[in-house]
């Protein structure tokens, strides 16, 4: 990202002795396979989704067919489940970002300190990033949070509290915690590298001048992390907008739609209720929604990286 913005394309590496058109053609030729594939990948399904979204199309009910106009959209947009799932999507993304970026920054500073066995501790911290979402969801649902057999429930009983059925009582919050557990390590991984790249002399100088740990964090470390935080936010948002496996495995979106996000709502419409038309309308809305977020993100990140 930084490279894109720092080296403007015109300040290029094109060989001086090379004819311009020849280079251009070669460049285009080399670029085209990837571009054409991605063009097809992003356009064809989208156009199809757009088409299905205007149709009455149910996989199990062949009598229902024909042009539906905007009925699928109207039906969806007036559905309280839809608004609820949109809100849940937002809460999940914002919550996990907050936990992973906030926690990640603090942990990056912590694991930047010299201490006994730091290397091993770091490896332990980043491990959850390698665990597949289905496994982490099952792991938390059963081994950790199960109201009877879970370790956390046993701990609560040990100190005299009544265990809570987390996924039934606070489904969205619990899923947020599980997802944050997966993504916090990712943030730590990147932010730690950023903290370590900070000039040691600068930190030392600040310390000599009498800056306390909080002042050093606020005025030296935090500004330095801007770029890395942008990258974390950007990559995590891509994945968080479409959280699926964790919901599917733990609550199946329930109870009711309490933990249904947009991705899961469309999934349940399409593959569980076979309503291709309605699911496609949801898909179009999800794509529009993601693009709005993408525009803001790319802008914000680009600005931050240029600074």
């Amino acid at each position: 990202m930084q490279a894109v913005l720092e080296h403007s394309p015109s300040a290029g590496a094109t060989a001086p002795n090379q004819t311009k058109t020849g280079g251009k053609r070669t460049g285009l030729l080399l670029l085209s396979p990837s571009v054409l594939l991605l063009l097809a990948w992003s356009l064809v399904p989208f156009v199809m989704t757009l088409w299905y979204s205007t149709q009455n199309y149910n996989l199990v009910d062949p009598t229902l067919h024909g042009f539906a106009g905007i009925d699928n959209y109207r039906y969806l947009l007036t559905d309280p489940d839809f608004l609820h799932s949109l809100l849940n999507t937002f809460v999940l993304v914002a919550g996990v970002l907050l936990i992973s970026v906030g926690g990640g920054t603090l942990l990056a500073v912590l694991y930047d300190q010299e201490f006994f066995g730091r290397g091993i501790a770091r490896i332990l911290v980043i491990s959850p990033f390698f665990i597949m979402p289905t496994v982490s969801a099952l792991l938390w649902k059963n081994l950790m949070l199960h109201p009877i057999y879970g370790v956390y429930s046993a701990m609560m009983r040990a100190v005299g509290l009544t265990p809570i059925d987390w996924l039934a009582r606070f489904p969205l919050l619990t899923i947020m915690m599980i997802v944050a557990w997966e993504w916090l390590p990712f943030a730590v991984l990147i932010l730690l590298t950023a903290v370590q790249s900070l000039d040691g002399e600068q930190r030392e100088a600040a310390r000599m001048d009498g800056a306390g740990p909080i002042a050093r964090f606020r005025y030296i470390i935090l500004p330095h992390l801007g770029r890395a935080i942008s990258v974390v936010v950007m990559i995590e948002t891509i994945y968080l907008l479409t959280i699926f496996a964790e919901i599917s495995v733990t609550t199946a979106g329930g109870p009711g739609v309490a933990s249904t996000n947009l991705a899961y709502l469309i999934y349940s419409r399409a593959l569980l209720q076979f309503d291709v038309g309605g699911a496609s309308a949801g898909g179009v809305i999800a794509i529009i929604f993601a693009n709005i977020v993408a525009i803001f993100l790319v802008r914000a990140v680009a600005r931050n990286l240029e600074a």
Binding site: V4, L5, S8, P9, S10, G12, A13, T14, G23, K24, T26, G27, L30, L31, S34, V35, L38, W41, S42, V44, P45, F46, M48, T49, Y52, I238, L241, T242, F244, L262, A263, Y264, I266, Y267, A270, L271, V276, A279, S280, G282, G283, V284, A286, I287, F289, A290, N291, V293, A294, L297, V298
Partner: peptide, 28 residues
């Protein structure tokens, strides 16, 4: 190594296709 005026735009566009939510195109 053979950048053109459009290189940056193409890169940003490529990344934006990654933001396409899979569930949006699940059916097709």
């Amino acid at each position: 190594f053979l950048p053109s005026k459009r290189t940056r735009g193409i890169l940003l566009w490529m990344l934006s296709t990654r933001m396409l939510p899979p569930v949006g195109v699940l059916v097709p």
